[in-house]
Design a protein around this nucleic acid. Structure first.
Lengths: 111, 111
DNA sequence: CAGGTATATACCGTACTGTGCATATACGTG
DNA sequence: CACGTATATGCACAGTACGGTATATACCTG
């Protein structure tokens, strides 16, 4: 799946990333917190590591994992062209609060 | 795959979305521009439609598709907790962003 | 109504990915 | 050095999503 998008498609991997967003954690901490099996955590971490989402620091027998932001920044960058819809969506919501109406932002000839 | 992340994991779907980011298009326009087969385009559009990423306007025999921002906004929101990592790695973005990188070998050193 | 165009759907084969379970490796301690 | 802990890896299996081809449906035009 090679791309960053494929990596974060997996719910458990997103959970791991979200967990690491607040602080770095060892494998067993992740395992306990998220209630997944240890091999599963290790495998997901391997995928995340090889894709550059996390890196590990060795602490005795533990591997303490932490976020590396680059791939997520790439995702963020991919979203850029769509951000212009954000505000339009807010406008649409406001209009919708009054009453319902059709009207896509650009004026189009009807029919 | 259920979630917005699973939907945009597919490269062709991301291509469709990126294309629609600039302007709405009919199925055949997408087909020609992206060089995919028509059934493939229709199937991906169905997935995107059912997940709320796009909506279709009927224009005679054509279906003109356009972006709906909500699911992408959800992705954007999911990225929020990670944005605190951005600043430290602004420079690294350029290195990573051009293309998918060949998974950075585990030779990550200090820090 | 026939024929053509535009799009959607059905079916099939295949490839991939996540999981469970078992096991291997690494490290620290008594 | 043996043992316990922490993490990684190998393997078999099941589910599923994608592509391709064929076909169905919808709509327009003459």
């Amino acid at each position: 799946m090679e791309s960053a998008f494929g990596i974060i498609a997996e719910p458990n991997r997103r959970a791991i990333l979200s967990l690491l967003a607040s602080a770095e954690r060892s494998v067993s901490e992740i395992e306990l917190t998220l209630g997944m099996t240890q091999p599963s955590v290790s495998k997901h971490l391997k995928v995340l590591r090889e894709a550059g989402f996390v890196e590990a620091r060795v602490d005795a027998q533990r591997r303490v994992y932490r976020i590396r932001p680059e791939p997520l920044m790439a995702v963020d960058a991919w979203l850029d062209p769509f951000r212009r819809f954000w505000s339009a969506h807010v406008d649409a919501l406001e209009r919708h609060l009054d009453r319902f109406e059709p009207a896509p932002p650009p004026k189009r000839k009807k029919r």
